[in-house]
Design a protein around this nucleic acid. Structure first.
Length: 466
RNA sequence: UCCUCAGUAGCUCAGUUGGCAGAGCGGGUGGCUGUUAACCACUAGGUCGGCGGUUCAAGUCCGUCCUGAGGAGCCA
């Protein structure tokens, strides 16, 4: 058996030579691949996330980013010197462990490593996050370390899978990725607050939506999408809000509202199903999330007109508790607030599509209904369980005169929209699209209380770091 | 901007009617040959968010400010 430890702490040059020889032949692998090496001695490289010990045994809880495994260091097997190395290890020490892979029914993963070698690669002193409970603010202050936890691992892997399945969905459906710019000269919608920045002596803004540029892109490629970060300077301090979040925005030429709803519905079913395929077990065990609500995400979603939704909310308002009743007051023409959306979605077991909102409460580029100009051909998809609006979209105004009038009515700078109006001058066609908020979707899939855990480094009204 | 709640050890929290500042975890020391957020014993660790006030006496009551959390509005 070869023992090796931190350079300088080993005694003999013959041992160093043996170590060098061993390093050439040792198989280095990851925890996720460990099942292929039962009975063999392999090397793992990672970190110690916990340790339990007795006088003659050390149970090293090891993680390498691909999974976790327990390495057992027995004093009788490895000797005093190496055992002392194991004994001195602290939480989150970076280590290399060599050992024989064995199957063990006592192990949650079914495998265990019987250590034969151990090296301290990087020590860790006074690691701030213990294996006990912590508060949200403390954990967010240590986000750069919190990412190492099992829970954050699961959430960010779900995010990764959703991003990949979103891209796959559109790529497979003939869409072209056309990135929208993040630095823009003016507001897209004029309604929300933008982050401003200086741009070589001129005023510029961080984009709050890539949609207007996708309208140009879809006239070039037929079907296009963008997927990137987006910025909102709203002073919102709720668990549904981030100032920097990711949004995917597809746009399709020759598509009307009905086609847009078909697309959004099929898209959402597809990415949720994929997330469940890959992560159902983790979501259920690590995040303790009931999967029923996600398994219900199947076509068709209820399609509810705004008119009908208002009538439903009025009924809910009438029989609501006094406290809620005040918040549920509604008249035709008002936009829905969070309480309206939450109570409405509680009536259904899957996402719902609310369409044809009053044009007065929607953005200037929304297409007005030909027969009822007081409503816009738009749709919001509301997730169940109070997760709120995850998709907003609709058919765009394709008539030049109507759009010009809308820009003036919203008091927007006409010069900045000249290029946008060109799209209506040169071969305008009906077109539609939508935007999906990635973080709200991740929060919904993972059953999280707050969206801040769904992005690696959250930016909120009161937090610009780490 | 408005409403509600919170701030006590490194972390999570308790602290009764205003009467000596506490526990668990984490750290340290010692013990334990199969632990599963291991366990057992001992130990160190405090500007009770800041300032001001009431009182013989304030973590506790009052005022004010700061910070954090949730919600409204707004939004994906």
């Amino acid at each position: 058996m070869i023992l090796w430890t931190t350079p300088g702490k080993t005694g003999s040059s013959s041992l160093a030579a043996a170590v060098a020889a061993r390093e050439v032949t040792m198989i280095t692998t990851r925890v996720s691949e460990i099942g292929q090496y039962v009975g063999e001695v392999v090397r793992l490289q990672g970190w110690l996330f916990n340790k339990r010990s007795s006088k003659k045994l050390q149970f090293l809880q090891f993680r390498d980013g691909s999974g976790t495994i327990q390495a057992v260091v027995s004093k009788a097997d490895v000797g005093n010197e190496l055992f002392a190395v194991a004994d001195a290890l602290t939480q989150e020490s970076a280590i290399r462990v060599d050992g024989k892979v064995v199957e063990d029914p006592r192990s949650p993963s079914g495998y265990e490593l019987q250590a034969t070698g151990l090296e301290l690669v990087g020590p860790s002193v006074d690691y701030p996050i213990s294996n006990k409970a912590h508060g949200d603010a403390f954990l967010m202050d240590h986000r750069h370390l919190w990412l190492r936890s099992r829970r954050q691992h699961t959430i960010l892997r779900v995010r990764h899978t959703l991003i990949k399945s979103i891209r796959d969905y559109f790529d497979n459906a003939g869409f072209v990725l056309v990135d929208s710019p993040l630095l823009t000269p003016a507001a897209c919608e004029g309604t929300t607050t933008l982050f401003g920045t200086e741009y070589f002596g001129r005023q510029a803004f961080l984009s709050q939506s890539g949609q207007l540029y996708q309208e140009a892109a879809c006239m070039a490629f037929g079907k296009s999408y963008c997927f990137g970060p987006t910025f909102r300077a709203e002073k919102s301090k709720t668990r549904r809000h981030l100032t920097e979040f990711w949004m995917v925005e597809p746009e399709v030429a020759y598509l009307d509202l009905e086609g847009d709803m078909d697309l959004a519905e099929d898209f959402l079913c597809s990415i949720i199903a994929r997330a469940l395929d890959v992560h159902a077990k983790e979501i259920e065990t690590v995040l303790e999330r009931d999967l029923t609500a996600l398994e219900n995400v199947r076509k068709p979603f209820p399609r509810i007109s705004y008119d009908n939704a208002v009538e439903q909310v009025k009924v809910l308002h009438a029989k609501a508790e006094p406290e809620l009743q005040e918040q549920l007051a509604i008249e035709w023409g008002m936009d829905f607030g969070s309480p309206h959306e939450t109570e409405l979605t509680k009536q259904y077991d899957r996402p719902i599509m609310v369409y044809n909102y009053p044009s007065a409460v929607k953005a200037f580029y929304m297409k007005k209904d030909v027969l009822r100009p007081e409503v816009a051909r738009c749709v919001d998809i509301l997730a169940p369980e109070g997760y709120g609006e995850i998709i907003g979209g609709g058919q765009r105004e394709d008539d030049l005169d109507t759009l010009e009038a809308a820009i003036r009515a919203h008091d927007l700078p006409e010069e900045a929209f000249k290029w946008f109006l060109d799209l209506r001058r040169y071969g305008s066609v009906p077109h539609a699209g939508f935007g999906l908020g990635l973080e709200r979707t991740v929060a919904w899939v993972c059953g999280l209380h707050h969206v801040r855990e769904t992005i690696p480094f959250a930016r909120t009204m009161d937090r610009l770091g780490p």
